[in-house]
Design a binder for these strands. Structure first.
Lengths: 248, 248
DNA sequence: CCCGTTCCTGTGAATTTCCTGAGAAAGCGG
DNA sequence: CCGCTTTCTCAGGAAATTCACAGGAACGGG
């Protein structure tokens, strides 16, 4: 697995043979599966989806995914069983579990043990994509293809996805969890205008029902922390959205 | 056997020929075997599993594992018989026994006489991984490949996995068993945020059903012992988890 | 230059997340 | 069996974070 930089400046994961990464989405709620598939395709990944455990196993067999997104609550069998079947014939595939927050610790215990990961519903797409990237990065193929990078850089601004640390020009900057996700989304799309709707869709939970101006608010927070007294890197495109780029 | 540092900074055991270590897991409880396999694969090891004694012997024959994790209670034959068969054709392989806590102690004593080791169910994955590492390190191949390292260091904090001793800046620090495992997990993943769920999964027993705030509690304990009056090394990433890193 | 629109940001309150003391229960050594 | 240690639950309180609201600033089309 390697990272390349596309003409647009987006970095995307590729497999060693320079073919796009394949991800299998398993969820019985069709709209959610749809939402996920779209988001993952937007990442440049190849996506297939299944609505139940049996379908998942079948799909895995001929699709040979590099990673799986798996709802732990499925109509026919539970997450662990599906995982078992997948793993039986298909060793190393990393899995990202989707689980309800209130599902009293839905026996998440054990699920993340193997280096797999999980997110609780309702999640933000940014969260899912980030975790998935992490899993793929750390999976066998990534190691085989060389050094995996856990850090995003735009100009003198650096964001480390492992330690959740942010710094600009060497100075450490403290950001909150939401600020971190927003900044990560911006930095993953440098020099590209992102609309408030896009940002809301990616960074906030999919069922967020609040005011649209939280985005403005958090942009404001980030500016205070990142651009304070320096060449601004976060820019407003009135009527369009926001973008981040290195200062001249 | 050598230790190398992967791109992510994790150290992993390799065989003299720089091939991953091979581990055979023998347990008839499929979910447990699954859990173990996942955890061991995550360590970078190659894993095969068997559900009974006969299968174990067969698997060992063509898999030639560097270590075996063996449940002493198997449907077809008991641990001793399996061990006998394994050893008959395959001398030196170190074995980690899994045993129920109430199992008769002296039986185990006999089993571990040859430098093997055991853990009682329910165990924590950290425990199993650590013991297994110890066994492999001490086994023939490790000696052949040179010095094995049993100590973790982050800044001036040192943890010895063999003696279970911890010290910071030369001062010995007493930690309890649970504190030790938590600290070891943190130190094996320096500068990386570990979520409370991940920590719970790795450090606590797999059937632990308690409150998630034991993690907070033990972090608090560790801070009192390790960071007291010094530059803090254990940091909270609110909404994300905890991480350890050397103070500047 | 005016006006409607869009964006920025201070204030404050609700909520979430984390920390930690106190004590019950279980384990261990003598 | 007793006393000490360790593990863990519970609950209160502290602190950080998230978010709504609203007034004012900046912008851009006409």
């Amino acid at each position: 697995m390697t990272t390349t930089t596309s003409p647009q400046g987006r970095t995307e994961l590729l497999r060693p043979d320079r073919t796009p990464v394949r991800v299998l989405v398993v969820d019985d709620e069709a709209p959610l599966a749809e939402l996920l598939s779209m988001a993952l395709r937007y990442e440049g990944w190849e996506v297939r989806s299944a609505g139940d455990g049996a379908g998942a196993v079948r799909a895995a067999r001929d699709f040979r995914p590099d990673a799986v997104v798996l709802d732990v609550m499925l109509p026919d069998m539970d997450g662990l069983s599906v995982l078992g079947r997948l793993r039986r014939e298909y060793d190393d595939v990393p899995v990202l579990f989707l689980t309800a927050r209130d599902a009293v610790e839905d026996r998440i215990a054990g699920l993340t043990a193997g280096g797999d990961d999980y997110v609780t519903k309702p999640f933000s797409l940014e969260e899912v994509v980030a975790r998935l990237r992490g899993l793929i990065r750390r999976s066998g193929s990534a190691v085989a293809a060389g050094r995996a990078e856990s850090t995003l850089t735009v100009g003198d601004l650096v964001l480390d996805e492992d330690s959740h640390e942010v710094s600009r020009g060497g100075d450490a900057i403290h950001v909150t969890a939401t600020e971190f996700e927003l900044l990560r989304f911006l930095m993953r799309n440098p020099r590209r205008v992102l609309s408030k709707a896009q940002i809301l869709d990616r960074v906030w939970n999919y069922d967020f029902g609040g005011q649209a101006n939280v985005v403005e608010l958090y942009i404001s927070y980030l500016r205070k922390k990142i651009d304070a007294g320096r060449t601004p890197m976060i820019h407003t495109r009135r009527g369009a959205g926001y973008l981040i780029k290195p200062g001249e």
